[in-house]
Amino acid sequence: MFTATQEQIDAWKSEHQINEVIALSSKKHDKRAYFRKPNRKEMEFLSAGTKSSGLKFNASLLKTCYLGGDKEIETNDDIFMGIGEQIMSLLTFDVVEVEKL
């Protein structure tokens, strides 16, 4: 299983100007890969090009946001199909408050 060093994680954060690096792992297959959240332009592109298929969206999201690690996270069908809800961790953003005045 690939394990990034703290130096590598810090380098990804600096290179991509991000605050978080997200690891997705498969214990069964002993694989781990690291991802970042998509930016607004990437979300527009991903949403426009994959409206008819959630699987295509997930595949495109992983490919777009991949930083490093075991590529089998994206290519092994057993792992890819198991990502499901965990992929949503790439899509959690700040919660804003609404205030009626």
Rank of each mutant, 00 (worst) to 15 (best):
T3E: 14
T5L: 07
Q6V: 12
E7G: 00
E7R: 08
I9D: 05
D10M: 05
A11I: 03
A11H: 12
K13C: 15
K13F: 11
E15C: 04
Q17W: 02
Q17M: 05
Q17H: 11
N19P: 00
N19I: 03
V21W: 12
I22W: 14
S25D: 09
S25V: 07
S25K: 15
S25L: 07
S26I: 01
S26Q: 03
K27Q: 13
K28E: 15
K28F: 11
D30T: 06
K31E: 09
K31W: 04
A33C: 04
A33K: 06
A33P: 01
Y34M: 10
Y34D: 10
Y34Q: 10
F35I: 10
F35Y: 15
F35T: 10
R36P: 03
K37W: 05
P38D: 01
N39H: 04
N39V: 00
N39E: 05
K41S: 07
K41Q: 08
M43S: 03
M43H: 04
M43T: 06
M43G: 02
E44G: 03
E44K: 11
E44Q: 13
E44C: 02
F45H: 12
L46E: 04
S47E: 14
S47T: 14
K51W: 10
K51L: 15
K51R: 15
S52R: 13
S52Q: 14
S53G: 05
S53M: 06
K56Q: 09
K56L: 08
F57K: 01
F57M: 04
A59P: 00
A59K: 08
S60A: 09
S60N: 09
L61W: 03
L61F: 02
L61A: 03
L62T: 09
L62Y: 10
K63C: 00
T64C: 03
T64D: 01
Y66I: 00
L67S: 02
G68L: 07
D70H: 02
E72S: 15
E72H: 10
I73R: 02
D77V: 08
D78M: 11
F80I: 05
F80T: 06
M81L: 09
M81D: 09
M81S: 12
G82K: 09
G82H: 11
G84W: 02
G84C: 02
E85I: 10
E85W: 11
Q86E: 11
Q86L: 13
Q86F: 13
I87N: 09
L91K: 07
L91T: 08
T92S: 11
F93A: 03
D94K: 14
D94N: 12
D94S: 12
V95P: 00
V95W: 05
V96K: 05
V96G: 01
V98D: 04
V98E: 09
E99Q: 06
E99K: 12
E99L: 03
K100H: 01
K100D: 02
